[in-house]
Amino acid sequence: MGQLVAGIRYHMKIWALFAKYSLMSQMEYRSNFLLTLAVESCFLLSKLIYAAVVYKTGIQLGGLSPDAMFLYIGVFILITAFYTGLFMNNFYRLPDYVREGTLDLLITKPVSTLFMVSTRHVDFAIPVPNMIAGGIIIAIGWRRLSIPFDFVHVAGFAGLLLCGVFLAYSLYLFPQILTFWTVRTSAVVEFADKAWDFNTMPMAIYRRWMQRIGTSLFPIFLIFNVPAMFLWNQLTWKMALWSIAAPLLFMGLVRIFWNVSIKRYSSAGG
């Protein structure tokens, strides 16, 4: 147990340094940094307008009230912000690392190469406006749905949100690891990115068979729907347990896939 805690502390310390250095590096190019913040805020405005339109029409989608929809949109924006800020850029860089041999030096460090590759760069300009807005939308939805603001609800929601982020990490790392086999991965990655957009609406609007696939084989629906379903009081025990187990299962699978794939690494210019 002590070893596990020490391991977590060690990795968190390195991650904190990655975040600090990423922020420092991004602020070096202040015009670009500020411009990205501004552009992202504009994108966010369009998302807020969309949320407002959904809300004002008062239409019930998949049996969900406008307030519940509003909360779901907040969850979608917040998890997307975490994913884009913490992992997405790292995942997109992996094919370049493999093609150009940049992985060489990362492999020689006495820390998990997968950890180094997937967390080294933290983006701040893109996710910050989304995090703020997502948080605000969730707060409004929470209040309008009269959900109790107590420890059980806050901790349960935060825990399931965290599970969603880790599930997104595991699922979206898979296609990028294919780079060790195919070098370029853009076709698969584009497919996976399109699948992300299925979550702009709650899974309740989709047919039963799609919901089954999206919560089992390729559980992208779990990422966003479960935290919201918890607050809507629609989460079954079975689904709750699966949404905690799925990130662990897929994290394990992605590690195995990584360990097998990295043996194919042939570096460059050797």
Binding site: Y21, S25, D104, L105, T108, P110, V111, T113
Partner: peptide, 24 residues
């Protein structure tokens, strides 16, 4: 085998690759 203890006991410098953060 890439054991952590091994990695702590050697270093490699590749003349055409950098481990420094360029902007820092």
């Amino acid at each position: 085998e890439r054991k952590k203890e091994f990695k702590k006991r050697f270093a490699i410098v590749l003349g055409q690759k950098s481990q420094l953060w360029p902007d820092l």
